[in-house]
Design a protein around this nucleic acid. Structure first.
Length: 563
RNA sequence: UGGGGCGUCGGCAAGUGGUAAGCCACCGGGUUUUGGUUCCGGUAUUCCUAGGUUCGAAUCCUAGCGCCUCAGCCA
């Protein structure tokens, strides 16, 4: 973890309290958590919250956190997903050591537990069809009816279950169900299915099984087998907790974990459901799961997010039971905060306008020294070539500036960062009236950016025209235009897609950037934070992604004044 | 209309009987070779509502109201 991480924001939350209490009372000598994703998709920022919570609690209390892939449904899972999950967790900065597990590691044990349940007359093989089971289940307000197979002899169920395993029956022919209470007001307790027949190739166990355990049965037992003390999951599993406890109480298991539920993360201006994320990818609305606009960990990584920013964010949003939607500005703040501290400052001009310094020698080139970080000398410095023709940002010049505009305009003097003071003498336009060039003069006494006490109201970034390198710059913005893209029941969330979420431009950058390595992050001074694209960056054709812009007070002032 | 859960500032979120932390956002102001950073200051007489208990309640009691969740051989 980087030394930039701030721990001063650590706040109490109910899970931390429970853990402290359990340690204080001696209920547990040490704690064990786990992050249990199903390898059927890519991880997103919601998972990041869970990862940070589980690994974070383990680290904070010197416990352990297992990475467990919950692979009980072979029709949806594959190794590509397990690899991406491992990579994402590692990138976030967490280490599971030798504690990588799979629910499928326990298939044999799970099978034996199921047999045990049948022997205890706490489970039975049911031959009702899926539709019949549904019909027998009852509704929210009416109790269910018992299956006609419910009271068949234990031996018969046991025999059938063994033959299920042996592959004697076709898929869907029968299931094994826990025998609990068909009239329970909690529907998860109405004889839930715990094993089904599913002839599918499993990514790890291959074809050795044709029956697979259900989540409710497998999860609690996996936790118990691993000695998990605190099994943290999201709110929608609250209804399943009595069932979780039922299984571990019936069976002779090595430990009794406690399930604790917390609210999943929702973020403004984004969608989080796996289904909707898949839609974006499949409909080609984004370039893939790692599109820099996606809230996936892979996407955020490619966008240039830092693991520390995500960790800090997770800590700050807290953990509670209340459903809530976090303002994405909070995430952006955590991002800028980390980037500000860790990133080198360089210069690049996104939308150039040429400046010719008429009193600067025709062929002269000077090497000017410029630090990489004004507040952190340890980052060192580089030299910048300066010459007669430069580029500055189009936004930094106005022919008829409003009162509060401090930048360059006719007759006004400004500073070129780490270079000289220049004064605009003349504006050159084309036939159409577009400004194509600015004729300026410079003050040779202001080298480095200081002149005898003379103050100037603005400092502009610039690049030397003949030394600048050209690069593709991908300007990313929020994917949606509304804080709650899922909030309108009438309209599909894709109608709120931001048409300007990506703008690709060609920019002029200072030459040092040609040697940037993929995933190197920098700040283009006065503009924002950028990252050399993980996939497409090469020194021949540099590609930078905008991670996030700097806070732009001027933009707010000017739009407020209608300037 | 059964069960479970949740309601504290614009958004997160502490607080669990002693008189409303913090963060984001927002608004002022200082410093500044990034209109960045940073630093100072401001921002809930009030905790879903209504009653009640108490010297004292966001915290306890009662009754309402609102929102989330559960009827996969998904997780």
């Amino acid at each position: 973890m980087s030394h930039h991480e701030s721990h001063d924001t650590e706040v109490s939350h109910f899970i931390r309290d429970i853990i402290k209490e359990d340690l204080a009372t001696g209920k547990h000598k040490s704690i064990a958590t786990r992050f249990p994703p199903e390898p059927n998709g890519y991880l997103h920022i919601g998972h990041a919250k869970s990862i940070c919570l589980n690994f974070g609690m383990a680290k904070e209390f010197s416990g352990t956190c297992n990475l467990r892939l919950d692979d009980t449904n072979p029709t949806k899972e594959n190794t590509e997903y397990v690899e991406s999950i491992k990579g994402d967790v590692r990138w976030l900065g967490f280490d599971w050591g030798d504690r990588l597990f799979f629910a499928s590691d326990y298939f044999e044990k799970l099978y034996n537990y199921a047999e045990e349940l049948i022997r205890m007359d706490k489970a039975y093989v049911c031959e009702l069809s899926a539709e019949e089971i549904r019909a027998f289940r009852g509704t929210l307000t009416e109790p269910g009816k018992e299956s006609p197979y419910r009271n068949r002899p234990t031996e018969e169920s046991l025999d059938l279950f063994r033959r299920m395993r042996a592959g004697e029956f076709e898929d869907g022919k029968m299931v094994v169900r826990a025998k609990i209470d068909m009239s329970s007001p909690n529907i998860t307790l109405r004889d839930p299915t715990i094993y089904r027949i599913r002839r599918a190739h499993h990514h790890r166990t291959g074809d050795t099984w044709c029956i697979y355990p259900m989540y409710d049965f497998a999860h609690c037992l996996s936790d118990a087998l691993e000695g998990i003390t605190h099994s943290l999951c999201t709110l929608e599993f609250e209804n399943n907790r009595p069932l979780y406890e039922w299984f571990i109480n019936q069976l002779d298991v090595p430990s009794h974990p406690r399930q604790i539920e917390f609210a999943r993360l929702e973020l403004t201006y984004t969608v989080m459901s796996k289904r909707k994320l898949l839609r974006l990818v499949e409909d080609g609305l984004v370039s893939g799961w790692d599109d820099p606009r996606m809230p996936t960990i892979a996407g955020m990584r490619r966008r240039g997010f830092t693991p520390a920013a995500l960790r800090n964010f997770s800590e700050r949003i807290g953990v509670a039971k209340r459903n809530s939607t976090v303002d994405v500005a909070m995430l952006e703040h955590a991002l800028r905060e980390d980037l500000n501290a860790t990133t080198r400052r360089v210069m690049g001009v996104l939308d150039p306008i040429k400046v010719v310094i008429e009193n600067y020698p025709e062929d002269a080139v000077e090497e000017l020294d410029a630090p990489f970080h004004p507040e952190d000398e340890s980052m060192g410095s580089r030299t910048l070539p300066f010459s007669r023709e430069l580029y500055i940002e189009r936004d930094d010049f106005m022919e008829n500036p409003p009162k509060k505009f401090f930048r360059l305009s006719p007759g006004r003097e400004v500073r070129l960062r780490y270079a000289y003071y220049i004064t605009c003498k003349e504006v050159v336009k084309d036939e159409a009236g577009n400004i194509v060039e600015l004729i300026c003069t410079y003050d040779p006494e202001s080298r480095g950016g200081t002149a005898d006490g003379r103050k100037v109201k603005a400092t502009l970034h610039w690049v030397s025209a003949k030394h600048a390198i050209r690069a593709e710059v991908r300007l990313y913005d929020r994917l949606f235009t509304t804080p709650a893209p899922e909030g309108d029941k009438e309209k599909d969330f894709t109608t709120f897609l931001n048409p300007d979420s990506l703008n690709v431009i060609e920019a002029y950058l200072e030459p040092s950037l040609a040697s940037a390595a993929p995933e190197d992050r920098v700040q283009f001074e006065r503009i924002g934070y950028f990252v050399a694209d993980k996939i497409d960056m090469t020194s021949e054709k540099p590609v930078f992604n905008r991670i996030i812009g700097l806070r732009d007070t001027w933009a707010r002032i000017s739009s407020k004044e209608g300037a």
